[in-house]
């Protein structure tokens, strides 16, 4: 399983490096959404700083749909999916590999959006470890849910619109918890974050396990 997952991860990232869809399309889209949110809130620095965490994570959520859609579209072309089934690629490895590739891309986008939030929206960062830990846990959840649901809607005609409709409600706990953690990271102490981190960790574990178990059945039903 892990060997196949590694092969899929390397392959997906290699395709991304060759095509640079994430760099030229997804990242600008996420950055523009962050800037538009800041325009909507007005120029007051304190208001922008207060809303920075929320704006960043909504931007990340939008980017998730694009990255996941792109990730699944790679498997839709020219009989690739069937060829891999026949070649004996482990579905669990496939899920883990694709989720890992989505994770890496989203984490890179988050790092750049976080930098944008710091510079443009004046978001203070007092506890960097919390920012990083919550981002990693939240991104595992986003990547796992996105990859699993992306495969579920892969065969549907209106998959581009179906994916956000199905996934957005599921990702609400991740969005709220990640924003709470980022807000807590912007102050030196005071806000309890244990529960929010637990929610992110639980969410990540549950959906990773669900993906590993269900991905093969989802593929076969396509």
């Amino acid at each position: 399983m892990f060997r196949d997952a590694w092969a899929i991860l390397v392959k997906d990232l290699r395709i991304e490096l060759r095509t640079r869809v994430g760099l030229w399309q997804v990242l600008p889209f996420a950055a523009i959404s962050l800037i538009l949110f800041s325009f909507a809130l007005g120029p007051k620095a304190s208001t922008l700083a207060h809303g920075a965490a929320g704006m960043t994570w909504v931007g990340v959520l939008f980017a998730t749909f694009l990255v996941v859609g792109r990730s699944q579209s790679l498997e839709m072309g020219t009989g690739v999916s069937e060829a891999q089934r026949l070649a004996g690629v482990d579905p669990a490895g496939m899920f883990l590999g694709k989720a890992a590739a989505v994770f890496v891309q989203l984490l890179a986008i988050e790092a750049l959006l976080g930098l944008g939030a710091k510079l443009l929206l004046h978001m203070p960062i007092e506890r960097l470890w919390l920012l990083v830990a919550s981002s990693v846990l939240a991104t595992i959840g986003l990547a796992a849910v996105g990859t699993l649901y992306g495969a579920i809607v892969a065969g549907a005609r209106a998959r581009e619109t179906l994916l956000p409709m199905l996934v957005l409600p599921v990702l609400v706990p991740v969005l709220i918890s990640a924003v709470k953690c980022w807000q807590a990271a912007s102050v030196s102490k005071g806000l309890a974050i244990g529960e929010w981190l637990s929610i992110l960790a639980t969410f990540a574990v549950v959906y990773l396990a669900a993906g590993i178990i269900l991905y093969g059945q989802v593929q076969e039903s396509q």
Binding site: R14, I15, G77, G79, V80, E82, A83
Partner: peptide
């Protein structure tokens, strides 16, 4: 199975 599709990734 070798069919009308290559079963390979176009980007690679």
């Amino acid at each position: 199975l070798f069919g009308h599709n290559t079963g390979l990734y176009d980007e690679l």
